[in-house]
Design a protein around this nucleic acid. Structure first.
Ligand SMILES: [Mn+2]
Ligand SMILES: [Mn+2]
Ligand SMILES: [Zn+2]
Ligand SMILES: [Zn+2]
Lengths: 139, 139
DNA sequence: GTCTTGACTTGGACATAGTCCAATATAGGA
DNA sequence: TCCTATATTGGACTATGTCCAAGTCAAGAC
């Protein structure tokens, strides 16, 4: 993710302490945090960082394509730093755990032209739901 | 949707004026309203109906499988009365319009077993994004 | 190294979406 | 008609996210 910092510098970003810790949090574990979770972890490294800066920076990273927003339920958006590997998500309907999964074949092909209604379709997201081994055992 | 009222009666539901107008709103046009949109339309028929009753009733209809929740962005959930025809959604990234679409083939088949991580996968939702004809013309 | 300035950060107010609850009303059976 | 379990209501409360004016600071100019 020092790559990320370099790319941001190349785009004329000021490298503030706040942006650094947010990048570190996203880089650390390869998970899908909410904005509040990112903030909680950023505070451990930089206690005075504000919620507003976290929301601002996440929004900017999304606009630059360095992070993608993931919405699997109607709750808080999650921020996914894994943009270098195309993937979809598998969500546990018990505990909410999210795993990255790679699909095979052309997902777009499942939508017949007759069902496109003149849209220029350019993106598809797939979410699989099921119970993870832990939740299945506990039921 | 008088079918719906009958099914609800059969399940021991009290048929209140509030539940009737909510069912009528969902039945009317075949769209994907938010809870607040359902409330606004219900108020036209029954001015004193409360937000709480709309949220309560929508939640109950979802629990019964008579309506499904749809989340295509990080905004308000939408309520879809079209549960009798399996379908996915096509969303305009310009204006947010949502269309029902029917896919062909087995969507689950795109997820290799090696990518299931021991989950018992039982559901898949697909959302296609693109620009509708109107938004494409305006750009 | 110091200055300068426009970009960045901040706390808090505000907005939107949804939940919860105690008091009140009512559907539907007796 | 009466009874009461169930449903409704207004409003407080929570969760998530946005906005803004005032203060701060990164980094280029000198
Ligand atoms: Mn991911
Ligand atoms: Mn639909
Ligand atoms: Zn689980
Ligand atoms: Zn459109």
């Amino acid at each position: 993710m020092s790559d990320l910092l370099q790319r941001l510098r190349d785009r004329g970003w000021r490298l503030t302490a706040q942006r650094r810790v947010i990048a570190e949090v996203l880089d650390g574990e390869h998970v899908h945090y909410t904005a509040e979770e990112v903030h909680a972890r950023a505070v451990e490294r930089l206690p005075e960082i504000s919620r507003a800066s976290v929301y601002n920076t996440l929004g900017e990273l999304v606009a630059l394509g360095e992070v993608v927003e993931v919405t699997t339920d109607g709750r808080a958006k999650r921020y996914d730093p894994n943009v270098h590997q195309e993937h979809q998500h598998l969500v546990c309907s018990g505990c909410g755990m999210i795993r990255d999964v790679r699909t095979e074949g052309d997902l777009m092909a499942a939508l017949p032209f007759g069902e496109r209604f003149g849209f220029a379709v350019d993106e598809v997201t797939v979410t699989y739901y099921g119970r993870c081994p832990g939740c299945a055992a506990a039921s």
